[in-house]
């Protein structure tokens, strides 16, 4: 239930982010016992490289606290879509915060918005949509993979978000978004291998007063076909873009400052001994606070194609 709104203390059943380090975070469920593979109910112990955590011990603890592990410690954080995206069980390739942020911005999602999403995938983007549109909007999310749809539905419920979302198992490319959704959406988001097939369905789902459209495609050819479809149906403000986030790794660098002036002086045997002792002394160091990118960066996530459906386009 820890996704609905900010809360201060861990309650039983909450998803909790166990923060070990910048590169090591885990989403765990704050329940005192779990059922093991043999069907036995056992104490819920979570293993980390810094030792184990008896999960019961964190129930009632304030979020943001430090908790002790058997060989170290960790922080417990309240989950939110950013932290969830970094810790969720990947069922598919997922979209990350930089692209998602642009999607939410361009789709103008705010409380009250009705959004149609396909596919649900791992539910990473869905959590962002839900944060942005609750408590007064609704998300309709579709996946053609039945197990994924079921898992997502269950997950949203456990996260306290069930009231704001409907999960559908459906092949939208062939079958569309169901006629109940005709003309209800403020925004449609597609992450499909053939987005062009779903563009006419998106067109139908958007409100008569118009709305915004987004398709996320890894390949340029998908975007090209999608745009052809959008133009045919009268979409405007068609715009494709890429967003790549660069992390700066901050470090202090020390550079030796070397003296070359003394080389201009004759090296008498007396002066020589002084030089030699000099050369062995630790040289002057100049410190710089600087940063660089990691050696390998994400070079591509996907092309984002946005468009506007203007108001009053007949949908005959």
């Amino acid at each position: 239930m820890s996704f609905l709104k900010p809360k201060t203390h861990i309650e039983q059943g909450d998803i909790v982010i166990l923060y070990l380090s910048v590169n090591s975070m885990h989403a765990i469920e704050a329940v005192p016992t779990i059922v093991n593979k043999k069907g036995e109910t056992i104490a819920h112990i979570f293993q980390t490289p810094y030792g184990s955590l008896k999960v019961q011990s964190i129930i009632g603890v304030e979020y943001g606290s430090r908790v002790e592990l058997s060989k170290g410690w960790a922080y417990v954080l309240q989950p939110n879509p950013e932290l969830w995206t970094q810790t969720l069980p990947h069922r598919t390739q997922i979209i990350y915060t930089p692209d998602i942020s642009m999607i939410l911005h361009q789709l103008e999602v705010r409380p009250g918005a009705v959004v149609v999403e396909s596919g649900t995938g791992s539910g990473s983007l869905s959590h962002y949509f839900l944060r942005a549109l609750k408590p007064t909007g609704h998300l309709h999310t579709f996946d053609f993979h039945e197990a994924r749809a079921d898992q997502a539905r269950d997950e949203f419920k456990r996260h306290g978000l069930g009231d704001f979302v409907t999960v559908y198992h459906r092949d939208v490319c062939n079958l569309g978004f169901t006629s109940e959704l005709d003309g209800v959406a403020d925004a449609v988001f597609l992450d499909l291998p053939a987005p062009d097939l779903a563009v006419p369905h998106a067109f139908k789902a958007l409100k008569l007063s118009g709305g915004r459209f987004c398709s996320f495609s890894p390949c340029i050819e998908q975007s090209q076909r999608c745009i052809n479809g959008l133009i045919k149906l009268g979409f405007t403000e068609i715009c494709s873009m890429e967003v790549l986030q660069q992390e700066s790794v901050i470090k202090t660098r020390s550079l030796p400052v070397i003296d070359l002036e003394f080389l201009k002086m004759p090296k008498s045997s007396e002066a020589n001994s002084i030089d030699d002792s000099k050369a062995k002394e630790p040289k002057e160091l100049k410190k710089y606070l600087t940063s660089s990118c990691p050696q390998v960066l994400p070079g591509h996530t996907g092309f984002l194609t946005f468009a506007t459906l203007p108001p009053n386009i007949p949908k005959a």
Binding site: S240, Q245, Q246, E247, T305
Partner: peptide
């Protein structure tokens, strides 16, 4: 404060037109 990150972005728009992408 934990989980500190310093980030910036690189953003580019595309012209997608037949044979002129």
């Amino acid at each position: 404060v934990t989980n500190l990150h310093l980030t910036s972005n690189w953003m580019r728009t595309y012209q997608i037109l037949p044979n002129r992408t």
